[in-house]
């Protein structure tokens, strides 16, 4: 297996928060979701991987060979965009194109113009252009995406790209991810963070779950769906099933949660019903356990 990024024990220490040690692999040729609650450390990890934030310890190996994130060649290969105010608010699309063209070797102004049209942001050659501060949050994010996708990169690293987008735009984002991945036939990768995986589920191949600055689970989505089960049943059977479950939430009539697939037989014996979980259900189950939200 080729990895776009291998994360070897990265740590970052703040006064009130510690990230890591993080050990994870971002597989090459796939779309990887970094899933976690607010404050889990997703943004910090992404910023470290893209050289926006310095790390306290550990190392990341990019494309199997590069380790110095300050190397301009490596930075040109990474397409990074943050979730809010990535560009100054007084900038117009033309200013963005000018700055991107000067700053990056691989920015294509024509592609940027096409993407702006595709994402319904208008014509960047128009005489009157809106400044970033005049755009809605969703349109700002579209502008960031157009700018980063207009570069010829090998990995996209996006922080919460879907959080401010409407459902149609999220669907368009999924299409753009797929197109980006197939363009280079397995040589390109995507890493994005989210705290709501539901709308991005069908474009997620690999998932990394984070909580309290640590990775609590990672793997290919299909493997994780084999490893875990969604469990539900009547409240009367809850006590027998609960001890076998990783996360549990119950009401007067029923219960639901996540359990390891290896307990399927014993769960069935306890009259619980098991199903293959969706990534959203898996996320909720794993994060509930990690964040200690158990009822």
């Amino acid at each position: 297996m080729k990895y776009a990024i291998s994360i070897n024990g990265i740590t970052k220490t703040y006064k009130d928060f510690t990230l890591g040690e993080i050990r994870a692999n971002i597989p090459c040729g796939f779309s990887t979701a970094l899933i976690g609650a607010n404050g889990a450390g997703k943004t910090t990890l992404i910023d470290i991987l893209c050289g926006v934030t310095g790390k306290t310890g550990g190392e990341a190996v990019y494309f199997g060979e590069m380790t110095d994130i300050d190397d301009p060649v490596l930075r040109n290969r990474i397409g990074y965009c943050s979730s809010a105010d990535f560009f100054p608010l007084s900038w117009t699309p033309k200013d963005i194109a000018n700055a991107m063209e000067l700053g990056f070797d691989n920015f294509d102004r024509t592609k940027f113009a096409d993407l702006c049209m595709q994402l319904r942001l208008g014509d960047i050659k128009a005489r009157k252009q809106k400044k970033m501060m005049q755009l809605s949050d969703g349109n700002r994010m579209r502008m960031y995406l157009a700018a980063v996708l207009a570069r010829d990169t090998e990995i996209l690293v996006l922080d919460e790209p879907a959080s401010s987008l409407d459902p149609l735009a999220r669907d368009m984002l999924c299409d753009l991810f797929r197109k980006y991945l197939v363009e280079r036939d397995g040589e390109r990768s995507v890493l994005f963070s989210t705290h709501n995986i539901a709308d991005m589920e069908n474009v997620t191949d690999y998932a990394i779950f984070m909580s309290h600055g640590q990775i609590i689970e990672q793997g290919f989505v299909e493997d994780l769906k084999q490893k875990y089960l969604l469990v539900h049943g009547d409240a009367a059977d809850a006590d027998r099933a609960k001890s076998l479950m990783l996360s549990f939430s119950g009401s007067q009539n029923s219960f639901e949660g996540i359990a390891l697939a290896e307990h399927a037989g014993r769960l069935h014996a306890a009259n619980a019903v098991t199903e293959i979980p969706t990534l959203q259900q898996l996320s909720v189950g794993l994060l509930r356990k990690a964040e200690a939200y158990e009822n």
Partner: peptide, 19 residues
């Protein structure tokens, strides 16, 4: 500053601090 609009864009440039 990193927390200001554009702060992360500037820090993600290939030349980074040299820029």
């Amino acid at each position: 500053e990193k927390t200001m609009p554009g702060g992360k864009f500037y820090r993600s440039l290939p030349e980074g601090f040299t820029a």
